[in-house]
């Protein structure tokens, strides 16, 4: 019997980590390694790779701090899907549901001359939103499923 052909020409890679802040750097770098072959062969590719590394880092930090409340040893799964012209990074965790509206958090406004009132946090989601082309969130049973989409 012939093997069934894949239904479309999509490539998929995955890696898993547990919820320690120390594991983020390695996982984000692994995602970059998976993405690199699909990046354009020009000067843009470094900027796109850097954007993906930063956004994956921000998402994983949020998962550990907020979904898992800082608890270690909990599972996080990353999937990279490549289609022509498009990279998707899927992040799954089994932590607390994300409050509505979180991913649309807008840029923190501040007065650059008022040092004492500068924001020390709240940069994460605005950084993700301004660097990715699309961000999706779905609660699937007891899992969070976040998708970062970048046109390449």
């Amino acid at each position: 019997m012939a093997m069934q052909a894949p239904h479309h020409a999509e490539t998929e890679k995955e890696c898993r980590l547990t919820s320690e802040l120390e594991s983020i750097a390695g996982a984000a770098r692994q995602v970059m390694v998976y993405c690199r072959p699909y990046l354009p062969a020009d000067r843009q590719s470094e900027a796109i790779a850097a954007a993906i590394e930063l956004c994956v880092t921000e998402v994983l930090t949020n998962v550990i701090r907020h979904a898992y409340g800082g608890a270690g040893g909990r599972p996080i799964q990353l999937q990279v899907k490549a289609e022509p012209g498009l990279l998707e990074v899927h992040v799954y965790d089994e932590g607390a549901k994300m409050p509505a509206g979180t991913i649309r958090s807008s840029e923190v406004d501040f007065d650059p001359t008022d040092i004492s009132a500068l924001p020390e946090g709240g940069f994460g989601w605005p950084l993700i939103n301004c660097q990715m082309d699309q961000v999706r969130y779905r609660r699937e049973g007891n899992r969070n499923h976040l998708t970062l989409i970048k046109a390449v």
Binding site: E120, G121, F123
Partner: peptide
Amino acid sequence: EFVDSSGLGSIVGTLKYLG
């Protein structure tokens, strides 16, 4: 080679602490 939002927060926090 890499700073994330937490690292940035700590640099900003240092500037505020110095005042």
